[in-house]
Amino acid sequence: MYKSRYSTFYLILIFLGGLLLLFLVAPLLGMFFKTSGTDLWATANEKEVTDSFLLTIFTALGATVTGAILAIPLSYILARKDFPLKGLVSGIIDLPVVIPHSAAGIAILGFISRDTTLGKAAEFAGITLVGSPIAISMAMAFVSLPFLVNAARDGFAAVPERLEKAAMNLGASPTKVFLTISLPLAWRSILSGLIMMFARGMSEFGAVIIVAYHPMVAPVMIFERFSSFGLKYATPVSVLFILVALFLFIAFRLLLKKKKNA
């Protein structure tokens, strides 16, 4: 006796899931098919566009690397230690997820403008923060750090404490334990957090446009082309940027997978 593998219940689930996938994929595919290859090629050869893409990638990379240096130690503390107000610290980490990104941009602008201590200090060093790649990186980091901290914290928490204790018993200092045991074992989670942070930073619009309209990162450029010239001119840039982002995302994912199999 062979019964149908799918009951009505599962057919309903599959139908609803299918609708969701269609909702995600259809608009993107529609946009892809509406864009001609020649338009795409022409856009890809515009210096303004390539400059903007490079700026986006490098500012997001800068945000991720700087973020990692500060976020990984904090994640380790959050995973391993109990301390007063730990709940509050965790809440602060998640804050950027819940506040509107434009508001986050306003807050950062207020933080780095010329009349603040930080702004004055930078001015003194000859750097104008507002409208600079540094400001863009800061805005990107602000909204994307939670992804890294949470992933890294979960990664560290999943490393059995016994392994760390065993390493200490075998003579390793806390620093050595962190470098030889905790970090390698949590590395996959951390890397996945880094990729999420990088992707989130690259696609950030709301916070970035407030701290730096110029130089233009890709999401701002897409918005600018749309508001100045309309949908027809914004589409090729959008498609191109999605392709670049997808390419990077898939490349990182493959890297992660390869490491797992190694």
Partner: peptide, 19 residues
């Protein structure tokens, strides 16, 4: 400190480093 005791411990679950 536990690094400076010359006491060796074998854990119940062995705590072998998996990587």
């Amino acid at each position: 400190k536990m690094q400076k005791r010359d006491v060796g411990m074998v854990f119940q679950d062995y705590a072998i480093f998996p990587h």
